[in-house]
Amino acid sequence: MLLIHCPYCDETLPELEFAHAGEAHVARPENPSAQSDAEWEEFLFIRRNVKGPHYERWRHTHGCGRFFNAVRDTVSDRFLATYPAGAPRPSLASLTGESE
């Protein structure tokens, strides 16, 4: 079982308390009606499907209830970092530097 650190509760808790919520940092367009069909398609459907460190959203469903962001390596399933929603994305260099 994965152990996930919730940045709001500041505790490391079992995966069962959390729900995965897709890729992070997919920003909704400021002016949706000005978007072309191709841009909408990209916003709605196109995801990066990364092999390696992946920026993704999680929700502490059975806890504080908050969405937050995480960087998880999709190969090893290891969490490199978790940080509150709305915070800037941490650079990969700083994360891999810390963890090795």
């Binding site: 808790l13 079992p14 069962l16 806890g63 504080c64 209830g65």
Partner: peptide, 17 residues
């Protein structure tokens, strides 16, 4: 409960599963 009961100190509380 998947979490450790001892991670909740007496006098505290949590929402959990």
């Amino acid at each position: 409960m998947p979490r450790d009961p001892d991670s909740i100190a007496p006098g505290e509380g949590r929402r959990t599963l």
